[in-house]
């Protein structure tokens, strides 16, 4: 290699890489570190303590935000994976390949339009149409339902992309053979399709959950600026705006970081079945 034969150049590149990555990670590490601060203020270090972790655990607002986030994540994941799965089932088998191509772009639309526009579209749609329609039927379509719908819409794009690649390597011969041998649809679904698709389903579910946990815009707009309902990111957002900040915000942030990273990494590991990096992907 030409460039690596020049040690000076290599050192410069390494220095640049280390510096940039350090700059990327340092703020986050410091944030987590200051969560163990003993003092009153978020920004002045006064010794190690778990005081704010204890405070956060007994803080109802924070627990509620965490539960909201998990609940919304769970429901939106179920919806988005179900939609993506049924969609891929159709897209893989349909005779109308061109139609499948167009619908593929429809499904991945949320990945390409600015999130703020998507959120506003959802806001208008829900306030103007869904809410009145549900009220007429006697249901109250509240912010929780709205955010679930919004997150599901956002996550379907990611889920269907992951599942589509998984379905591409699906071995349909096994299914045909099973049918020849007299297996019913149910048996084929449970014993042929599910085992093959399972890793893709799990990856799609993890990524959907990560997308939902990570989302700020959709929750922000559909809960009218976080006043109607707080997810964990919205709770951090509201703490950040206050005058007097305690290390509590660091604790809440650390909790969110860890939960989200867990789902993100699991989703990545499960979805990168073929090459090491080709399937690495993140919620944008």
């Amino acid at each position: 290699m030409v460039n690596s034969s020049n040690p000076m150049r290599k050192k410069l590149l390494l220095g640049w890489t280390v510096l940039s990555l350090a700059l990327l990670y340092t703020p986050v590490f410091m944030l987590v570190f200051y969560g163990f601060n003993a003092g009153q203020f978020a920004l002045r270090w006064e010794g190690f303590s778990l005081r704010w972790y204890a405070a956060a655990l007994s803080n109802e607002e924070m627990i509620l935000a965490l539960l909201n986030s998990l609940l919304i994540g769970l429901f939106s994941t179920v919806i988005s994976v179900a939609l993506a799965f049924t969609y891929c089932l159709w897209a893989q088998r349909t005779r109308f390949k061109r139609l499948a191509g167009t619908s593929d772009s429809l499904m991945s639309l949320p990945l390409f339009i600015p999130e703020i526009v998507l959120s506003i579209g959802l806001l208008v749609m829900i306030v103007r149409f869904l809410k009145p329609a549900f009220l007429e039927m006697g249901f109250n379509f509240d912010s929780l339902a709205a955010v679930i719908v919004g997150h599901a819409t956002l996550a379907v794009g990611y889920a269907s992309l992951v599942l589509r690649t998984r379905f591409n390597s699906y071995d349909i011969q096994q299914e045909l053979a099973a049918r020849d041998l007299g297996a019913g649809s149910r048996q084929i679904f449970l014993e042929i399709m599910l085992p093959q698709i399972m890793p893709g389903l799990a990856a799609a579910a993890c990524l959907s959950f990560a997308v939902s946990l990570d989302d700020f815009y959709v929750s922000y707009f559909l809960s009218t600026g976080g006043s109607a309902l707080k997810t964990l990111p919205l709770y951090i957002w509201s703490l950040q705006g206050r005058k007097a900040m305690t290390p509590e915000i660091n604790v809440v942030s650390s909790v969110l970081l860890i939960v989200a990273l867990l789902f993100f990494c699991t989703g990545l590991t499960l979805s990168r079945s073929r090459s090491s990096v080709e399937n690495l992907k993140g919620p944008t």
């Binding site: 049924t86 619908s103 506003i120 579209g121 208008v124 749609m125 719908v149």
Partner: peptide, 21 residues
């Protein structure tokens, strides 16, 4: 028909809002 729910969902929550905007 299995592709329909997803397509309806996306049209309803992504495409239609644009028309409305």
């Amino acid at each position: 028909w299995t592709g329909l729910p997803a397509k309806i969902w996306m049209s309803l929550f992504v495409l239609f809002p644009f028309v409305w905007l």
